[in-house]
Amino acid sequence: MGDKAVEIDPGNAAQRADWDGPMGEFWVRWAAQLDRASAGYLPHLVVEVGAGDAVLDIGCGTGATTRAAARRGARATGVDLSASMLDLARRSAAEETVDDVEFVQGDAQVHPFPPAAYDVAISRHGSMFFADPVAAFANIASALKPGGRLALITWQAQKRNEFRTAVHAALAGWRPIAEPPAHAPSPFSLSDPERVREVVGAAGFEDVALREVREPMCFGDTVDEAYEYLSAHFGPVTADYDEELKARVFAALRADVAAHLTDGGVLYGSAAWLVTARRGRGR
């Protein structure tokens, strides 16, 4: 666990316990695979960053987006709930000799960011977990200069993301694939364009726009590599299965992974939104 003095909104306490605990440790262990899987989305995001920009990276995780922003000549600050992920982010920045980056443990919903200090706030799949997203984006807006920019990558609906539906279908056995709650913190809480416009607009942003982006998710070069990762990530849904059913569904998962092997690795389809907006100058 990280610094217990970190200010956390009570509604995000469960998220902090998870990301600054077992989920964070999982992401550290599998950081290379997770960064590779989402790598296709990085160019769509960092193109919004200019040389000389002060950048705030929300939910930065192990810091791939923060470092990418700095490589474009920005001064980048990454913020995340997970101490272990931030430790890896700092080590990676040092090993890659990426300058002008810093990493801060905090809850972006309530963190005391310096006011009007940043030109742009970015997030790659890290902004969907706030208990009160309007309050969180309002706090992020306060950290931006008037007219400052917001750029987010958020998942589209689960049904449009093959990497979720195919893997869950293999592991579900006889059970239907559960849909995540519409507005509760989850990877898909900002999948509805109308809700995105409502939340981001209510937080003080203007010119909210969404553009569809689709990229293949690569989970490994071989069936063994991809199966090891996917079974570790999604396998907990089988915790209450008996051994016979577990054997059957994991065999189904391996067969599905094999069916997705291409010359470029094991690829599954995915779909996201690039959300852009700017802080209102009257805020």
Rank of each mutant, 00 (worst) to 15 (best):
D119I: 09
A76R: 03
V275H: 03
E206M: 05
Y229W: 12
A259M: 10
A157I: 09
P176M: 07
G2K: 08
G63D: 05
S38H: 08
A31S: 11
R164P: 01
G52K: 04
H168Y: 13
D224H: 04
V98T: 10
D99F: 00
Q15S: 13
E162I: 06
L253I: 11
T77I: 13
L230C: 06
A70P: 13
R160Y: 08
E25I: 02
H168N: 12
D53A: 03
H125A: 14
T62H: 01
L88S: 06
D207T: 07
V79D: 11
A277F: 02
A258L: 07
V98Q: 03
A277H: 04
R164K: 03
P112G: 04
L274Q: 02
L261V: 14
F130E: 11
A166C: 08
Q33P: 01
R175C: 01
D80R: 02
P181W: 02
F113Y: 10
L245S: 09
S123D: 12
A169N: 10
A143V: 05
A76N: 06
E212F: 00
R75T: 15
G280A: 14
D263G: 15
L274I: 11
E206V: 14
A17R: 13
N161A: 06
P193D: 09
A203Q: 09
V200P: 09
T62R: 00
T77H: 04
G24W: 06
V196F: 01
A5P: 00
D242I: 08
F129M: 11
T62M: 05
R160L: 15
G106C: 07
